[in-house]
Design a binder for these strands. Structure first.
Lengths: 146, 146
DNA sequence: CATGCTGTTGCAACTGGTCGCAATAAGGGG
DNA sequence: CCCCTTATTGCGACCAGTTGCAACAGCATG
């Protein structure tokens, strides 16, 4: 259940001249029991539940470090707020209906044609996990009455 | 140069029971001389240049109203900050390189396959102007030395 | 032109997140 | 096991944007 990379994290940090601190341990504990996506402030809250002395800026800075290490990835929800994915996880983006507010995962498969055509036409490599596509879902576009 | 809808705005507001106020006139003046995209805070600044008494919340609330009227549209930049497009304008999204920070327009044509496949497979209608695709541009993926 | 309904403003407090800086502490070397 | 370098923390200020509320002011009506 736990990704094998959690145990090696302290060493991976040290190998880069970075440090393993109690504050980082708290955040990593929280992340290791997280599935799917969380917002930054949710992570701050969960860390505070473990250690009430948790400071937000420390959490955000640690998240930056963990992103460098490839442990998490961040994107932005439809309202522009930060969303974090814990890796490894199938890379995917999000589909958000601006009418009813529901969200769905957007698999690499769904986005394949976009990813391919941008690579072919512009040499641009899409970071799908950073993407939220906004629009209106089937139910909201065509509200067939019951 | 000026979109014909600007003059009719006061009446369009009144027709909905809304009001035409000095504060709204300032923002609309600013918008009418804006091309491309602007962030919310840029608009606040430009309004303040016209009327130093401008209050941010008034600007943001007016932008909401104008979005309802279809005069502007908002999306989020790669950092999650708000970006406004003044309409009418070809609907387009944005492509942002997370490595060098450059942005490009993403035309409806570029995104055609994505838009089509989401509509076909899920009935989801994409609001392209809300979308910023993040990744790495050709130059950053393959830094061919000179 | 005076009246009143209600949309709008200004303000202040608050949320999510970032930044600079002085003090602290991790952890490699002697 | 202590020392020293320097990464990291805590803190306070700040930026972008939102929200609740009392006071204000469009504008339709009479």
């Amino acid at each position: 259940m736990t990704s094998p990379s959690w145990e090696s994290l302290p060493d991976r940090l040290r190998a880069r001249g970075l440090r393993w601190t109690p504050q980082r341990r708290v955040l990593v504990d929280v992340l290791s029991s997280t599935r799917g996506h969380v917002t930054g402030s949710e992570l701050v809250e969960r860390c505070r539940a473990v250690d009430p002395a948790t400071i937000p800026s420390t959490v955000y800075r640690t998240l930056d470090v963990l992103e460098d290490l490839g442990v998490v990835r961040h994107g932005h929800g439809p309202d522009g707020r930060e969303e974090f994915h814990v890796l490894p996880e199938a890379e995917h983006g999000h589909l958000h209906c601006e009418s009813c507010g529901t969200s769905w995962d957007l698999s690499l498969d769904d986005a394949r044609t976009l990813v391919r055509s941008l690579r072919a036409r512009r040499g641009f490599v899409v970071d799908l996990s950073h993407v939220t596509i906004v629009g209106r879902c089937a139910g909201c576009v065509d509200p067939t009455p019951p």
